[in-house]
Design a protein around this nucleic acid. Structure first.
Length: 528
RNA sequence: GCGGGUAUAGCUUAGUGGUAAAGCUCCAGCCUUCCAAGCUGAUUACGUGAGUUCGAUUCUCACUACCCGCUCCA
């Protein structure tokens, strides 16, 4: 298969997943009836169950089943000083500019300063076709480069304004050429020498005004929607330390919404403007930092496997020097093979003592830790496993989606769509079906089973349509088990089968007989 | 943000300058003893706003959203 075909297949796969998510109530576009809100998504009845299962499992694994991590739920509205200290105000923006010739987009702060001769032009014309344009353009000639190459670049730039495609760019005449020496400029694309647009600042934080009567332009009233949950953990570090009787190393965990004014939301829910994070700030001594970063990488990888993301589709990127945040000594990105590419799910970063030190400096409050054993006082270092909750949901949806061709009793081939969620993540754990709805005894018994299981897990009762149809409906939403109450259950086929039901497994479609009394244990073991 | 594409029912698609068709789904009923059976019936759509026109879902423009590429991140 060619790359193009594969790409088309991946786009088609993604479209099917998006369609199913809407059709079955996993994910809707935010404010859909008003035309949608760019980069925002709502979770429907099944989506919210899936998301709760993920968050609750993450919380159980990382907080409740460990004695070295405690939880926090910080406010989303954030004091501006917090984000000034963290560097988000001012620093949390990407100055961008575009290559006027190739339209390539570049980060202005990542352009290497260059020196050389600049050829400026005021416009161009083409005598035979009456074409002329007044528009400034410039090309940088770097050392050792030919100035004719620069003119060629300029002609190619002006040729995009030609209406007649048959005119060769070579025959254009450049106007107002003027040479100029420049040093350390970042106004030109290093790859092409072409002039760039002015850098535009995109502040990625949502700003708001606190207080209903706050006046326009009142600097003190500015607050922000947090761009990450981490900062409230650092800011509350001292309170947690003093109230929780924790000792280093220990962590503070938080799950919550964060907001980034993304320039370009993309790939369904992958890059949203409002998104949920699952973060741990694991505090330690400077000596422990590197080792704990490796520890948390493994810990997190095993978590993803335990929610049904196969290890082969998880990739670890050891972020090289120069690409990490300046305060990070080590960063691993955990990436997943999405249909639209290998993309980041989580970053495990050793952030040193950067954050606590900054807040200590800015607030003037000590955020130091006193080690009783060594009688030393220091600012703890921190390792941060920061996971994208919505991204993990998307990964689970992509991984679960499957279509299989099966041959039915009549020898006809048909397609079965099935979401192969891990049972502990599945929104609905078990479907409950009376074989026939017009037999009151079956319905009554099925309702009894429903009543028994409801307090233990999310189950779904369905009596409409043929039994096969009900199975398939549940396949499509990823329900791992279905039980069917039939005449055997009522004891009509003999006392030994009384109070047993058919248990049907989603992935294999295999059926087995099980006593109703054994259902809770059987199911709980699978979904725990 | 730039470039390209798309927008008709819950989904997948027809179609037209005189307000729309089908399949599947869904709902109700009948029937039905384990994998989307059958029959009957019902609900539901031209993304938004302007313009041209007697009349626009159709033509034009703008906007919005989504998809693809560049780019970026949890």
């Amino acid at each position: 298969m060619s790359n193009k075909d594969k790409q088309n297949d991946d786009v088609a796969a993604m479209e099917k997943i998006v369609s199913l998510c809407k059709r079955r109530g996993f994910i809707f576009q935010s404010a859909e009836i008003y035309g949608g809100l760019n980069g925002c998504w709502d979770y429907g009845p099944l989506g919210v169950e899936l998301k709760r299962n993920l968050k609750e499992y993450w919380w159980r694994r990382n907080v409740q089943e460990r004695d070295d991590i405690v939880g926090l739920d910080g406010s989303i509205l954030t004091h501006q000083e917090v984000l000034k200290a963290s560097g988000h105000v001012g620093g949390f923006s990407d100055p961008m500019c575009d290559d006027l010739l190739t339209k390539a987009r570049l980060r202005a702060d990542q352009i290497e300063p260059q020196s050389g001769t600049v050829l400026n032009f005021t416009g161009a014309s083409h005598a035979e076709s009456d074409f002329s344009i007044e528009r400034e353009f410039a090309v940088l000639i770097r050392e050792g480069e030919d100035e004719n190459k620069a003119r060629k670049t300029a002609k190619s730039y002006y040729s995009q304004f030609l209406k007649d495609g048959r005119i060769s760019p070579k025959t254009i005449e450049l106007q107002g050429e003027r040479a100029e020496e420049v040093t350390d400029t970042i106004r030109f694309n290093p790859a092409t020498g072409s002039l760039l647009t002015e850098a535009r600042e995109f502040n990625l934080m949502f700003q708001t005004t606190m207080g209903a009567s706050a006046e326009e332009g009142d600097e003190n009233a500015i607050a922000y929607l947090r761009p990450e949950t981490a900062q409230s953990i650092f800011v509350q570090f001292k309170n947690v330390l003093e109230t929780s009787r924790v000792k280093l190393p220990f962590g503070i965990a938080q799950i919550g919404k964060s907001f980034r004014n993304e320039i370009n939301p993309r790939n369904y829910t992958f890059r949203s403007r409002e998104f949920e994070q699952m973060e741990i700030e694991y505090f330690c001594t400077p000596e422990q930092g590197m080792e704990l970063t490796d520890y948390w990488l493994e810990e997190r990888l095993s978590f993803y496997e335990d929610i049904g993301l196969p290890r082969e589709k998880l990739h670890v990127l050891d972020v090289p020097d120069g690409e990490r945040a300046h305060y990070s000594k080590k960063t691993y990105d955990i990436e997943f093979e999405f249909p639209f590419g290998i993309q980041e799910l989580e970053g495990v970063a050793y952030r040193t003592d950067y954050d606590l030190s900054k807040h200590m400096e800015k607030s003037g409050k000590s955020l130091e830790y006193f080690d009783e054993a060594t009688k030393t006082r220091f600012v703890p270092h921190v390792v941060e496993p920061s996971a994208g909750c919505d991204r993990t949901i998307l990964a689970m949806l992509c991984e679960a989606y499957d279509e299989e061709t099966i041959t039915n009793d009549k020898g006809k081939e048909e397609m079965r769509t099935v979401m192969r969620f891990h049972p502990r993540m599945a929104p609905i754990k078990c479907g409950i079906f009376p074989l026939l709805k017009n037999k009151p005894e079956l319905v009554a018994k099925a309702r009894e089973v429903q009543k028994m299981l409801t307090p233990l897990m999310n189950v779904f009762y369905d009596e409409s349509g043929a039994i096969g149809r009900r199975y398939r409906r549940q396949d499509e939403v990823g329900t791992p088990y279905g039980v069917t109450i039939d005449f055997d259950t009522l004891g009509e086929e003999g006392p030994e089968l009384k109070d047993t039901v058919t248990l049907r497994e989603r992935d294999s479609m295999k059926q087995q007989r099980i006593a109703i009394a054994d259902l809770p244990m059987f199911l709980l073991e699978k979904i725990r």
